[in-house]
Nucleic acid binder design. Structure first.
Lengths: 206, 206
DNA sequence: CCAAAACTGCACTCACGGTACGGTTTCTCC
DNA sequence: GGAGAAACCGTACCGTGAGTGCAGTTTTGG
């Protein structure tokens, strides 16, 4: 890894936490470069403008999240052959991972960008949309596997259930931040887990 | 209503849609006053700074939402004496209301402010937190009434279930905006409704 | 050692938030 | 209808932050 790439990473790291803490518009390049210890010229050598910075931040964020999901759902599948059990275990792991974050979840970049959309170009917005679609598709696939074994009690659209997880996580992050209570995120994931259980787990036979 | 108050309302209306569309930081006073047809001096006559604008916008937004909830849950209670049925009806009404919005839900101001927090003073942030707490308390009260009649199947914390509605709505708004598909919000509310049904509705006796 | 990569320094421009203040129009009430 | 307050307008100004341009300097890897 060249030195330039290391600097890029440092900038992205600093920028990400700043953006999640106070929004993209309120994050000044001056403050980022001050913390990174380089000059304005140095910054614009790596990123042609703020939009390019957003684009790279997003790529980084999505990649990290994808990797996390890969690990968590693979682990769930390791621990149980039953698709429902595997998913429930994974959700528990996800909840634990979230609650282990030292200062709570730093925030969702997608949501942050969502509320600033006019600031970004089509490319960035398309990237956010595609990542959300990918995550939904991933959850949907898991749910398909479950529904094949355990027919749902209520007539539910599996696409909507898949969407639900993303929605709950995003919403819970906002609530955690707004109320300054990191535990909400963990608890919301666990409540979603209960809902999945209720939807698919066979009723106890009398 | 004096003429001044009318101008204030006009400014707030214009500012709200702009803020929801592109974020608070990206909304310039210049563009707001251009659309409102007044000068900078006129603006600062009504609001001492941007933070004061945010504060008033928030008060307005919260009041509107509170009123909507009052109406919807009162209506549900009118249509059924059973607390569970009343809630399920209200959720359906809520979903319909959301899907009737011409261009989809414009966005949640709370969430928008959440991702821009450093821009606002303590007062504004406290107002957002209090409204979220109020909404959660309202839902919690309804759930208490339901649980008194229908004991939940799974051991769930009713506070978490109450939070869940806010989370889902906020998350679904983000997804709707990100994917440019307004229908997601309605569908997520209905999925939440299914979950409530599964949690509390008595299993069909064989 | 040399060329490319990774910067620095400086001097700008433009947009935006905000201040200051004197002047002008428009209500409102007696 | 007149006085005074409320609701503005105009202009000039400051500080900050994004972004440009470009010449010069250091660092690094082959």
């Amino acid at each position: 890894m060249g030195k330039g790439e290391a600097t890029r990473e440092r900038i992205l790291e600093i920028a990400e936490s700043a953006v999640l803490a106070k929004g993209f518009g309120a994050t000044s390049i001056d403050e980022v470069i001050a913390e990174a210890g380089l000059t304005k010229s140095g910054f614009f050598y790596h990123f042609k403008d703020k939009n390019a910075l957003a684009h790279e931040m997003l790529r980084r964020y999505v990649a990290t999240n994808d990797q996390l999901f890969d690990e968590i759902f693979a682990r769930g599948h390791q621990l149980s052959d039953d698709p429902l059990q595997a998913f429930l275990i994974s959700l528990k792991l996800l909840a634990e991972t979230m609650s282990d974050l030292p200062n709570g979840h730093p925030g969702c970049l997608i949501a942050s960008i969502c509320y600033q959309e006019r600031l970004f170009d089509r490319e960035v917005r398309e990237l956010t949309a595609q990542s959300v679609r990918d995550w939904n598709a991933r959850f949907r696939k898991i749910l398909d596997g479950i529904a094949a074994v355990y027919p749902p009690r209520e007539p539910v659209d599996l696409d909507d259930v898949a969407d639900m997880l993303s929605c709950i996580v995003d919403g819970a992050i906002i609530m955690s931040k707004t109320l300054n209570d990191p535990s909400r995120l963990e608890r919301q994931i666990l409540i979603f887990r209960s809902c999945v259980k209720l939807m698919f787990a066979p009723s106890p036979l009398p």
